[in-house]
Simulated assay, not measured.
Amino acid sequence: MKKITIMASGSGTNAQAIIDHFATSGLARVNLVLSNKSTAQVLERATRAGIPALSFNRSAFAKAGPVSNLLKQEQPDLIVLAGFLWKIPDYLIQQFPQKIINIHPSLLPKYGGKGMYGHHVHEAVIAQGEKESGISIHYVNEAYDEGAIIQQVSCPVQTEDTAADLAQRIQQLEHEHFPNIIEGLLH
């Protein structure tokens, strides 16, 4: 059975969708959840699902060391960033080439890069008067949100939308499509 490691920084709704999707799958399972925040709700979600969950600090992540050693030991088939807000160090990208993916709440290359996450993205999309937005699932490389795009799914931006309205629509797309895209990558 293939192994998925999830890295997240927050509440973990995408992680939960992935955990639920693969809970009864014969293809893969979530073997580990990692977070850069010891208080992140994603750690509680993983623990409730019986999945090992650990947090780490910046120094444990910045250079090859504890996080790298743990991932070498676990040997995940795919590392999934699900709302993980730190840049992935080059050593991890080299250690797991084409095995780290991210989900971004816009149609990249628009509204990507450092500082463009969550409500910041949705506010920018609305401020620019975009007619559509969506999600981008992409491979992680050395630059924020510039890795090869695996798949994009769009949705309309309504003229009366607030950032919260758009965020809700984007989150529905994430929960619906992200687990299926992961499954496709693991086949």
Rank of each mutant, 00 (worst) to 15 (best):
K2R: 15
T5Y: 00
T5C: 15
T13W: 05
I19D: 02
F22R: 07
A28Y: 07
R29L: 00
L34C: 10
N36P: 10
K37T: 09
T39L: 03
A40E: 02
V42S: 09
R45D: 01
A46Y: 06
T47I: 05
F61N: 06
A62H: 09
L71K: 11
K72R: 13
Q73A: 15
D77R: 02
G83N: 05
L85H: 00
I88D: 06
P89G: 10
Q94E: 14
K99S: 15
N102E: 10
P105R: 03
L107E: 03
Y111C: 06
K114H: 07
K114W: 04
G115L: 06
G118Q: 05
H120P: 03
G129S: 06
E130Q: 11
S133F: 12
S133C: 11
G134Y: 02
H138V: 07
V140Q: 13
V140L: 11
E146R: 14
E146H: 13
G147Y: 09
I150Y: 11
I150A: 01
Q151P: 02
V153D: 06
C155V: 11
P156H: 13
A164Q: 14
L166S: 12
A167D: 12
R169D: 10
R169N: 09
I170T: 15
F178P: 11
E183G: 05
H187M: 05
